[in-house]
Write a protein that binds this DNA or RNA. Structure first.
Lengths: 198, 198
DNA sequence: GGTGTTTGCCTAAAGGCTGTAGGCAGATTC
DNA sequence: GAATCTGCCTACAGCCTTTAGGCAAACACC
């Protein structure tokens, strides 16, 4: 019986490809085994279980994304950097929808802390050096950017903006204009309404 | 054999509760049958299949969300309306995480067009009447708000902001301040960089 | 190059979920 | 009360997950 040369890494990479082809939630130990022309049970020497496979794919996607983000930000600042980072997320999601979905997998806190997720936060913070924001506004801005990028990409991929003018590229450009303007002119907090002011 | 009185509606509502308890992707025909103390095969008289069940739960969630949004917007304008709408999404996601996840299910175009999804777009547009935006900026703004609300809520629920100061309520308030400021002062498009401007 | 050990993929099997087909017994109708 | 309809049942087939135990290829060492 010829050996297939399985390793956790090869399985993870193949799983990521499979995710991009058929969707992250269609990634199954059985389908992956089929791709290697091997019985499903054989994968359990390399993977703990099905969840382990999904987690590995998620971690791979987070790494790839962080690598791309780091490349994109190198040598850029201000709006240029903002656009570059935003496009990294959007382009990655378009090129690798399954991997992008994987990157949204909820990780347990320990795994998340050891993942490339922390690099993403650091990179976004680096981007904000081009704008003049102190704490805690910088943290708020990191979260705003993360929310908007992720929200936009996930709605666009899910077809939420389809069948309507104007096209999504124009909206994307204008949203980046808007975020840039906002970061250059971050508003002071408004006074909360008092409780008895009906 | 006592009859359980199953209907598609009762199954959908129970499915939504199940989703909130165990997560939307754990909602299965088997688990739902168990909850009614009935065999799984019996549900197939009322549901076409497992996907049909998930779609019905998604449509229910979209309706509930649109109803809440309509209530929240009634009699409010400007920042007050913006905050109210945003809180509808965030609160719904917190109270009903499974339903909220269901509302993100990708629907086929015909189903989506007949769903309460269109009410959401209309309501957001109504909210923007309090700001002075013509087309196509209004559409861009609808998409920005949708993206930011959804992105924030989904990152917060997924634990993306956990274990870090400042707390998420403060960020949420400041993001709403920021969006309000942005809508009151929507920037003109920036000129695109020409290709040879390195 | 033989021998022993490790390692990789195998078969077997149990358990769960989806979905179809056909049956029987309450509920409904006249 | 009889006939019909409807709702839930059993049985079964197919696929996925996961564990247990086996055999043979690869490696390590003399």
């Amino acid at each position: 019986m010829a050996r297939a040369g399985l390793t956790a890494e090869r399985l993870t990479r193949a799983g990521a490809e499979l995710a991009d082809e058929v969707g992250f939630d269609q990634v199954t130990v059985s389908a992956l085994a089929r791709r290697f022309d091997v019985k499903a049970a054989s994968l359990y020497s390399h993977l703990e279980n099905s969840q382990d496979l999904r987690t590995r794919i998620a971690l791979l996607a987070l790494e790839e994304l962080a690598d791309r983000a780091a490349d994109a930000l190198a040598g850029r600042a201000g709006k240029d950097a903002l656009t570059a980072l935003a496009d990294v997320y959007r382009d990655y999601a378009r090129e690798h929808p399954g991997r992008y979905a994987a990157a949204q997998l909820r990780l347990d806190p320990a795994t998340a802390a050891a993942s490339a997720g922390v690099r993403h936060a650091r990179l976004t913070r680096a981007l904000l050096r081009g704008y003049e924001l102190g704490e805690p506004d910088q943290t708020h801005a990191v979260r705003l950017l993360g929310s908007t990028f992720h929200g936009y990409v996930s709605l666009e991929m899910g077809g939420g903006f389809s069948h309507s003018a104007p096209d999504t590229q124009e909206t994307w450009d204008r949203i980046l204009d808007a975020l840039d303007a906002l970061l250059r002119n971050w508003p002071a907090p408004t006074a909360p309404l008092s409780d008895d002011a009906h």
